[in-house]
Design a protein around this nucleic acid. Sequence first.
RNA 1: CGGGGCGUGGCGCAGCGGGUAGCGCGCAGCGUUCGGGACGCUGAGGUCGGAGGUUCAAAUCCUCUCGCCCCGACCA
Length: 579
Amino acid sequence: MRLSKLFGKTLRQAPADAESISHQLLLRAGMIAQTAAGIYSYLPLGWRVLRKIEGIVREEMDKAGGQEVMLPVLQPFEFWQQSGRHVSFGKSLFTLTDRKEHTLALGPTHEEIMADLVHRYVQSYRELPLLLYQMQTKLRDEPRPRGGLLRVREFIMKDLYSFDADEAGLDQSYRRMKQAYSAIYERIGLPVLMVEADSGAIGGKESDEFMVLTEGGEDEVIFCSACGYAANAEKAEFAKTESSAEQGQSPANREGQSDNPLPVQEIATPGAKTILQVADLLGVPASHTLKAVFYYADGEFVFVVIRGDLEVNETKLRNALKCADLRLATEAEVAEAGIVAGFASPVGIRGVKFLGDDSIASGSSFIVGANKPEYHLKNVRYPRDFQVDLLTDVAVAQPGHYCPKCRAELSSDRGIEVGHVFKLGTFISERFGASYLDSEGRSHPIFMGSYGIGLGRLLAAIVEQSHDDKGIIWPPSVTPYQIHLCALNLDKPSVLPTAEKVYRELQEQNIEVLFDDRDDSPGVKFNDADLLGIPLRLTLSPRTLQSQSVEVKRRTAQETDLVPLENLAVRVKELLAGL
RNA sequence: CGGGGCGUGGCGCAGCGGGUAGCGCGCAGCGUUCGGGACGCUGAGGUCGGAGGUUCAAAUCCUCUCGCCCCGACCA
């Protein structure tokens, strides 16, 4: 391709709207163009990269036994009612009405369509396992698109769906896909971390995400460098030992923790409404207090009790309550429940739903609100002094907490989710009647798994992770062109003819060449070359022609080499192979 | 949905104590340049996001509205 003819041009300054590095560089390099919030067009260079990513993903899916299909974007809304997921997807589901007043959904994902297909085509265990996949546009009305290609409303996604006869089969498909994913990221040259993930509204038992660790990532990853435990912060657990995140507290401060527990006692705590104030006032660590947090879950008031030094993880809470809609209760709602904000207590309150984080059962006694202004209670013990309807883990894991597996200290990092795999089980297949007959003629629901990779987000993650202050550095496997050929001083004798010849010869050897044939100064060309990020640059100028050679420079290197014009294609192939 | 910010040529911005728009980059032409974003001259390009209002007069003031970005909520 000739740069002089290439659609899209480089920008010296990034549009002010672009914040994330990948967004800025992709816009500046003329790879993408924004059409609306979270809606982008791919220009020729960006589209070439996307197609290369797609190619790698397709090869690995095929290698793993997947069969590619093409599915509808327009889906009958009834499918979503049938799976029940119109509720969990909620407003993220784009819908429209056709001329017959029939409601259709714009597919945000395709489990329903797949389950329906499999229901109609698969009858026997002999047809399982089955791996079907698609790479196509999906649409979600995201509450907040952001970061350029990182979170968008319209995106190309590879989704593979596995269908197995039983749990063991699903385990095997799941493992196979995780291997395929690792192979994909490895081929792309992108370091990823596999982390345990929340399976979200879609349900399912087990779920893992593939994270690219980078500063701008929108997810938080909690990990243990000692044993390798890693999880999305939404899901991460930690050992709720008493001293977690509260080291250095002398045992002398731990009043009332002996085997002979003291009775509950009321103490005046004027003006101390927050955990911090209470802890300060009484000279105890926050972990010796209990915090009350109030929610409304699908219309029901919920009183959450958690150790004072911990925060409520709303993802965990949502899962524990099995609710679709969760929000903090308003002050008025709290008051209406008979609770005194700032001095709230689970002791003595009736008629509301209580949920306790399991940290409250750690054996010590706590300071809690007295449920009357300016007073707290001390020596409160669970379950001696109050009970909860549900005791489970709903706490946010944070760096400094201890690893649930090995008790080493946990760390955290930001990450971009570039792949997500789920064990769905039989939830959806049952609702679509996707079942099979075993060898004895008995019917069973099919076990499903789903495995997604957002291709555009992956592209953006590559840029986030592989760039310098000059521009993008494409991994060789996804670069839009293999060679960036710069011809300098086009007006000088023999430069242009020689460059044209080189351009032609390389192409004849099936090498993808981007040929900068523009009549621009060297600075412009070099800066554009750096911005576009093609791994190997060839420069041809009067200077290199003096020695009948071409200058070679790697995008990642400072130094350059001269390579003779003779047999250039052969040498270039070697260089490409060595990248 | 809550909080904050911004809409003025393709991109980055100025103008906003009202008087009908300007700068840099880019673009077109000519000439001189040519190894890390060269220079000179000439030129094209703007419903000042939209609607309504105030005024003799609105990019500028007021009201409404739309769009975009960021933080949070949310997010297979």
